[in-house]
Design a protein around this nucleic acid. Structure first.
Length: 647
RNA sequence: GCCGACGUAGCUCAGCUGGUAGAGCACUUCACUCGUAAUGAAGGGGUCCCCGGUUCGACUCCGGGCGUCGGCUCCA
């Protein structure tokens, strides 16, 4: 049959030819470099017979193919890891070991005895190296389900047995699963879909990185397995570069930057809750101010609602049933109260305290409310996952006709906000979860409305099945931290449930009561998480308007301290966050300290400046940019602040 | 919450097979008064996370808590 190469050239191969034959037919060098072959977008082992039923577009995968090639050897490395584990820990049960974005993992159940720790890595790596040096061929064979089951039952590999049984059970009726593929390298055989590189020798550099627990099948009600993460590359240099990049990313960790910039800290006396120092609190408030300024012209009015509510409110909202584990509950005078984990029930209650006409709608409430959520201890993570936080929260009460416009308005508001920070975001539509309130019909309507809003704006999004809030579906807005972990920031949730449960009404033009629809929305999400993400995004070099200290005056000698202070005062009066470094230290020292604190502007003042009334301006990372009059510099600084410039 | 690791001065970290602690930076004082990334010297500072246990004696060993870190589950 004729195949087509990426160049467009044709390649004729005999029936039954393999990927290796194809590579050899193209060239001897390529045959040596080949790892796998892609036919019509599907990757095959080199040893497999090429399919003859498609268009026949083929591409040989080599080291140079990038991610796909790395995926192959990382998957190979996972097999080599499992092989090493079986030899070193007899009785270990292996489950799954896929390649992932930057490496691979393998989940195993350790035999009774001491737990696996990273101290065991050197021995495992040594054993893995033996398999790699032995240049073991990956041999694929297709066997019947019965034969495979018999094999894994005999080997006591329960997880493999379960995987095969599920494969059979979940197969569509018109394509029943009767056989599965096994891959063998050296003494080790694994149930695996493939594909793999030709042999273990293609793994040129690898490293085991960490151990963690992971639930079998991601289900917290099932067995906790031991997961080992590792990675593999085509060269030692590439591996080292990757490890160095990880190390550098740590420098942008907000948990390191926050204390360095004098913004916040943590204490064991309040796990999962940040303590904000003055400069950090100012940055925080700057963002609250932003939210207010942007919300006002968009029709939001700020409200204030209580922290602590009687349990009856949470019973009405459904939190008592669906969310209680995450709430801090307390008692007084034989009544049960709970701290609010969300603002919505309070806003609903607020809504009911007044009578509403259709003429008032939409009503848009905002509140940077303080929330408490009793998050599981193991999930806390710096500012990105805390127990005490404030959201840039808002709730819109509107008629059904207004939904499209309101959701569009929320999206516009969100993108206008992110633009200020130059953030790239990822949208997700999260649909009905198992644990929910409300009828399926309500959920159908809500999901359709959100999907419609996204589609009509031509926005890209992925669907996150089952991840909606218990009261409604949501559009979630995600960003990644310095290590590439994804965090949810903004959200826009459509809700028919709370209005019904709280009996919300408005009087229509027909003088009858009608039920409004509610939209829950947060754009930055929580201020805490948003600040954490911003710090990592900017590597601590926040835009001038957000920098905890925007300028620092550096007197050259002690006799310039008063002059320096007067400049700091002038800038401070103009609305900037300024300090004066009057320590008895050398200028070099003051500059070094200010640079390390990533302060955008350093103003050096000595005899010359004192005589001329100027300041010597030094910009963070740029160095000396020449002198300027105090007035000119003040104008420049306040300009940057007021315009919220990204520069 | 679950799995693993870790927890020594404000910070970053040493501390040998159990004999009650040490460095650098920071801080204080003194001298120097300095022109674009660390001036020098002296000094202060620690219930070695907490509670039990073993021991003549525990920072060190054992048990239980708490917290942090990396994951899992969950989530803004």
């Amino acid at each position: 049959m004729d195949y087509v190469l990426p160049s467009g050239d044709k390649l004729s191969l005999a029936h039954g030819a393999t990927g290796a034959d194809a590579a050899a037919a193209i060239g001897a060098g390529l045959a040596r470099a080949a790892l796998a072959i892609k036919v019509d977008g599907v990757t095959y082992d080199l040893s497999r017979e090429l399919p003859t039923d498609g268009e026949g577009k083929i591409e040989i995968i080599t080291e140079k193919s990038g991610g796909e090639a790395l995926e192959l050897i990382r998957h190979d490395a996972a097999h080599v890891f499992a092989a090493a584990m079986l030899e070193l820990y007899p009785g270990v049960k292996i489950s799954i070991g896929p390649p992932i974005e930057h490496g691979f993992y393998y989940d195993v159940e350790m035999p009774a005895g001491p737990a696996l720790s990273d101290a065991d890595f050197p021995a495992i790596e040594a054993k893995m190296r033996e398999h790699i040096n032995a240049d073991e061929t990956f041999l694929r064979e297709d066997v019947s389900v019965g034969e495979a089951l018999e094999r894994f039952v005999r080997e006591n590999q329960d997880y493999k047995v379960e995987l095969i049984e599920d494969l059979v059970k979940n197969a569509p009726a018109d394509a029943p699963v009767t056989s599965v593929s096994l891959y063998t390298n050296g003494p080790f055989t694994d149930l695996c879909r493939g594909p793999h590189a030709p042999s273990t020798k293609r793994i040129k550099a690898f490293k085991l990185q960490s151990v963690a627990g992971a639930y079998w099948r991601g289900d917290s009600d099932r067995q906790m397995l031991t997961r080992v993460y590792g990675t593999a590359f085509f060269s030692k240099a590439a591996l080292e570069e990757y490890l160095e990049r990880l190390e550098r990313a740590r420098a942008n960790d907000h948990r390191r930057l926050g204390p360095l910039l004098g913004m916040f800290g943590f204490s064991e006396t309040a796990p999962g809750s940040a303590f904000w120092f003055p400069r950090g609190a100012e940055v925080f408030n700057e963002l609250v101010r932003l939210s207010r300024e942007m919300g006002r012209p968009r029709g939001y009015s700020e409200v204030k609602t209580p922290q602590l509510f009687d349990s009856s409110l949470w019973k009405t909202s459904g939190h008592w049933d669906k969310y209680r584990d995450d709430m801090f509950v307390t008692e007084a005078e034989d009544r049960q109260f709970a701290l609010k984990p969300m603002n919505c029930p309070g806003h609903c209650q607020l809504y009911t305290l007044q009578k509403h006409s259709y003429r008032d709608l939409p009503v848009r409430y905002s509140e940077p409310g303080l929330l408490h959520r009793n998050e599981a201890s193991g999930t806390l993570h710096g500012l990105l996952r805390v127990r005490h936080f404030a959201q840039d929260d808002g709730h819109i009460f509107c008629t059904e006709d207004q939904i499209q416009d309101e959701v569009a308005g929320v999206l516009e508001f969100a993108f206008a906000t992110y633009k200020l920070f130059g953030l790239d975001v990822k949208l997700e539509l999260s649909t009905r979860p198992d644990k929910r309130i409300g009828s399926d019909e309500m959920w159908d309507r809500s999901e359709a409305a959100l999907k419609n809003a996204l589609d009509s704006h031509g926005l890209d999004y992925t669907i996150n099945e089952g991840d909606g809030a218990f009261y409604g579906p949501k559009i979630d807005i995600h960003m990644t931290d310095s290590l590439g972990r994804s965090w949810q920031l903004g959200t826009c949730q459509l809700d028919y449930n709370f209005p019904e449960r709280f009996g919300l009404t408005y009087t229509g033009a027909d003088n009858q009561d009608h039920q409004p629809v509610m939209i829950h929305r947060a754009l930055m999400g929580s201020y805490e998480r948003f600040i954490g993400i911003l710090l990592e995004h900017f590597g601590g070099e926040l835009p001038v308007w957000l920098a905890p200290t925007q300028a620092i005056v550096l007197p050259i000698a002690d006799r310039h301290n008063d002059f320096a202070q007067s400049i700091a005062d002038q800038l401070s009066d103009a609305g900037a966050r300024v300090e004066s470094d009057d320590r008895t230290e050398s200028v070099s020292r003051k500059i070094r300290d200010a640079e390390l604190r990533k302060i955008p502007f350093m103003l050096v003042v000595g005899d010359r400046e004192q005589a001329s009334g100027e300041v010597g301006v030094r910009e963070h990372r740029q160095g000396d940019v020449g002198s300027a009059s105090v007035a000119a510099f003040t104008e420049r600084l306040t300009g940057l602040i007021e315009s919220r410039s990204l520069a």
